[in-house]
Design a protein around this nucleic acid. Structure first.
Lengths: 109, 109
DNA sequence: TATATTAATCGTATTATTGCAATGTATTAA
DNA sequence: TTAATACATTGCAATAATACGATTAATATA
């Protein structure tokens, strides 16, 4: 108990839930929005802009990276993050299919 | 510590993260997909179809309901769930705007 | 009324998440 | 070489999430 039973769900369901979980935190949404707005790589100015400690930001970045939503490269002494196009488009597709499956016709409740 | 600092983020960021969190579990994705496929209300056959205990399913349904993604009405002895159109469309819009903010041009990392 | 049926709720054990101070690790600059 | 800069990691404490057995509440049926 206390552990998600991944084995009883499909790979697609598990994969989508992982991506959603990675985004399901206001700090990580803020980070992604910040990356999207600048449209180019950003470095560690996130710590100043968001009101969280450096260790906390670093941890959120790691989660986004582990989920494959962003990628980072070392740029001298700092690190440069940007969107991972492959995963981002995959998610756009999967989520789009999922959300648009609702045809608002038959309201029954 | 251990508590998300909602107060430092915008209402939109908090709202979107709440919706995403509500969906970010394979069981809840499976439940939503089941509701979407049948296009009409379904009741407690979820317990048989997914491999989870009745208490667990009920809890997941409650979370989806609290997030506003589904709604339920009592139908005799059973309960009938379906998509909440208002929240669903709100999420489609918000998520769509968020995801499509990425223009895959400037790859820099 | 008594008894199923259906689903919500409670209690509990286990695991995950969040946040941060402290520390570690490279890289750059002096 | 030494000091500074920029992040990553580690370790810890607090809170949240997951899952389920047991119980409760409400409705339907015999």
């Amino acid at each position: 108990m206390g552990l998600t039973k991944s084995e009883i769900f499909t790979d697609e369901q598990n994969q989508l839930s992982q991506l959603l979980k990675a985004m399901a935190h206001p700090a990580r949404i803020a980070i992604l929005q910040r990356i999207l707005i600048s449209n180019t790589c950003i470095c560690g100015d996130l710590v100043e802009e968001l009101g969280l400690a450096q260790a906390t930001i670093s941890q959120h970045l790691k989660e986004l990276k582990t989920a494959g939503l962003i990628q980072g490269t070392i740029e001298g002494v700092s690190v440069c993050y940007c969107i991972n196009p492959v995963t981002w488009k995959l998610m756009e597709k999967q989520l789009g299919a999922f959300l648009s499956a609702y045809k608002g016709e038959a309201h029954c409740c």
